[in-house]
């Protein structure tokens, strides 16, 4: 048992306290980010040039190190030329929150450029479909294999060494191969998600299956259950809540493969947006896109957790910790 809530919110009902802390867990990092961005005396290792003055290579909007800026200013003073002016700034890779918020908004409201362009939400939807199909296909094979491997020792020993081996092969390495076999569109991308998820899935689910209380299987056997019905009537329902939780975690895993998956074949989805914006140093757009992925991933997991509590009323571990 951990310590309770601080006195300030101790009088509130527990659900409210939890909600408050959850909000706080997001607000705190945002607060730190705001402070670093808006308080000029915090960090701000650069100077953004406003007036180049007499310095030849300075341009308005350029980011210069403090020391270099001071050195140039000193030289200008000595030479009696116009002094440059500037304001403290953060490096380009740390845009301020309001810029990211604006990028977030404009990202979704800017109509696509050109005829074959797509809206940002269409890119996202495309990415979500890649994940969805990759995960469904992986699960179609991974879940049954995992359950069988966890139930029948022989099968487990037959498949697991190879899968353990394969699991260490980096999924992205199969990119070119996947293109050669599956073409340039969504096929190879889905394949990368499948390769990235499947092997973990088999192992994780086999493990979960093995953790099922053996007494339950024995009880079912003494009640006359045999063969395949042991799996459908006991193993499957017995591990279902844990299987569901595993699948939630594996789905997150699948998301982490999205970025490599979408780099192969034709450029599409949210990855295209992120890499392209990063190439041109539009980091506020990059942050916005990363945050979107976070929101989708976190949001869908929250939904699934809630659904889990409905689906498995007998399983108390589905409840919030």
């Amino acid at each position: 048992m951990s310590l309770g809530f601080p006195a300030a919110i101790a009088h509130l009902p527990e659900s409210r306290q939890r909600a408050l802390l959850a909000v706080g867990s997001f607000l705190l990092p945002i607060l730190v980010w705001c402070m670093i961005s808006y308080l000029p005396f915090l960090w701000h290792p650069k100077v953004m040039v406003e007036e180049p003055g007499g310095v030849g290579y300075f341009q308005a909007g350029m980011l210069i190190d403090h020391a270099d800026f001071a050195e140039q200013a000193r030289q200008m003073r000595e030479q009696g030329l116009a002094l440059p002016s500037g304001i403290p700034a953060n490096p380009i890779y740390l845009p301020a929150p309001h810029l990211v918020a604006k990028a977030f908004y404009t990202g979704f409201t800017t109509p696509p450029q050109g005829r074959d362009g797509v809206w940002l939400h269409e890119s996202l939807w495309h990415s979500i479909q890649i994940i969805f199909w990759g995960f469904v296909i992986s699960s179609l094979f991974g879940v049954p294999l995992g359950i069988l491997g966890g139930t029948y020792t022989v099968l487990g020993r037959l498949q697991e060494p190879f899968i353990e081996f394969f699991r260490y092969l980096p999924a992205p390495a199969f990119g070119a191969l996947a293109v050669a076999v599956l073409g340039i569109y969504d096929g190879p991308k889905i394949a990368i998600i499948v390769i990235g998820t499947f092997f973990q899935q088999v192992l994780v689910i086999a493990n979960t299956t093995r953790k099922l209380e053996i007494t339950l299987i024995e009880a079912a056997r003494t009640l006359g259950t045999r063969g395949a019905r042991l799996i459908t009537k006991v193993v499957l329902p017995g591990i279902l809540p844990d299987l569901y939780r595993d699948q939630r975690i594996l789905l997150g895993w699948a998301w982490t493969y999205l970025i490599v998956a979408e780099l192969i074949g034709t450029s599409s989805g949210i990855t295209w947006y992120i890499t392209q914006q990063a190439r041109y140093q539009h980091f506020e757009n990059v942050y916005a896109a990363i945050i979107i992925i976070g929101i989708i991933g976190f949001g869908s997991d929250l939904l699934l957790a809630r659904l889990g509590r409905r689906l498995f009323p007998w399983d108390r571990t589905q409840e919030r910790k």
Binding site: E213, T215, L216, E218, A219, A220, T222, L223, G224, V234, P237, G238, L240, P241, F312, W314, D315
Partner: peptide, 16 residues
């Protein structure tokens, strides 16, 4: 087999 019923020490009820 069904001709021999068994009650275990640990809880062996199907939780689902």
């Amino acid at each position: 087999g069904r001709d021999r019923g068994m009650v275990f020490q640990g809880y062996s009820l199907f939780p689902w």
